[in-house]
């Protein structure tokens, strides 16, 4: 038997504090944060004159976008676009080809410990650096141009695909691998028959996604000298040639949208 429910009038209730239990600490921490924020804001040097100048320049950008000029610099644009696409395709293919063995080696459930640590190390190094940082290093090493961009994107692709492929392999259904192992299959046969079918759709999806990212990155790393459409964009901005810049940005947007749209289609088909 349970007691009948009784109403108890006059009992107050307040939601318990979520983050910091002690009221004293709460005042100290929030107070410090507010003081720092105020001081930091003060040090930024708000300069209304510069802001209005900037807005004026922004208006000229916008004007440029509204009157994009594809023709005057069409050769430069065309060359930059071809470079970017070449960089994207070659770097994606090379990067993915290198990523697959590294990803397999980095999966704890199928690779022996020393190989696993080595591959995870390679992945960690590749993921530690942002593309721009790598691009600066490669441009310094191999000079301006798309070769540095190709190396940058390949290197970044390895970290991305290997990591996600390895994680996916670690999550495969072990029962399927056990069944193939029990037939007397060797290690490569287990990878080919039990692992590959399970991770292939995801590998295809990731690869297409990476092609997408590589194209976008190719327009960014051009700014630090690694060739491609980014270099053309940077040059036109330096020449105050906003009409051409507008044309380039429109082209980049169109290409990224095309890549995104087609890759989502292919991914659905590969399920």
């Amino acid at each position: 038997m349970t007691a009948p429910t009784r109403s108890s009038p006059g009992r107050t209730w307040r939601r318990p504090p979520a983050l910091i239990k002690s009221p004293a600490w709460r005042i100290v921490i929030y107070g410090c944060a507010a003081v720092y924020l105020a001081a930091a804001m003060g040090s930024v040097e708000l300069d209304w004159a510069r802001i209005s100048q900037g807005l004026e320049r922004g208006a000229r950008f916008a004007e440029g976008f509204l009157t994009p000029n594809f023709t005057t610099r069409s050769r430069d644009i065309w060359q930059g676009m071809v470079e970017s696409i070449t960089m994207t395709v070659t770097a994606s293919v090379v990067g993915i080809l290198i990523s697959v063995p590294i990803g397999i080696g980095a999966a704890r459930n199928i690779a022996p410990f020393p190989i696993h640590s080595l591959c995870r190390g390679v992945i960690a190094i590749s993921r530690a650096f942002q593309e721009i940082v790598i691009a600066i290093v490669f441009v310094a090493m191999f000079g301006f141009g798309p070769f540095a961009g190709f190396l940058t994107l390949s290197f970044a692709t390895i970290g991305f695909i290997s990591k996600l492929l390895a994680d996916d392999i670690e999550e495969v259904d072990e029962a399927q691998a056990e069944a193939i192992r029990s037939t007397g299959a060797g290690w490569w046969q287990i990878v080919n028959y039990a692992i590959q079918p399970q991770v292939m759709p995801r590998l295809i999806g990731l690869s297409l996604y990476r092609v997408d990212i590589n194209f976008r990155e190719s327009s960014v790393i051009g700014i630090v000298g690694a060739g491609g459409i980014g270099a053309t964009l940077n040059t036109s901005m330096e020449r105050y040639d906003y009409d051409t810049a507008g044309a380039i940005i429109i082209l980049i947007i169109v290409f990224v949208m095309l890549a995104e749209y087609s890759s989502s289609h292919i991914r659905r088909w590969a399920q």
Binding site: D173, A175, Q176, E178, A179, I180, R181, S182, T183, G184, Y193, A194, P197, Q198, M200, P201
Partner: peptide, 18 residues
């Protein structure tokens, strides 16, 4: 030796995508 021993599993353990 394993290839001489056939095994049948609880949840079938077929490779689903093959």
């Amino acid at each position: 030796a394993r290839r001489r021993i056939g095994m049948i599993f609880q949840e079938y353990a077929l490779v689903e995508r093959l």
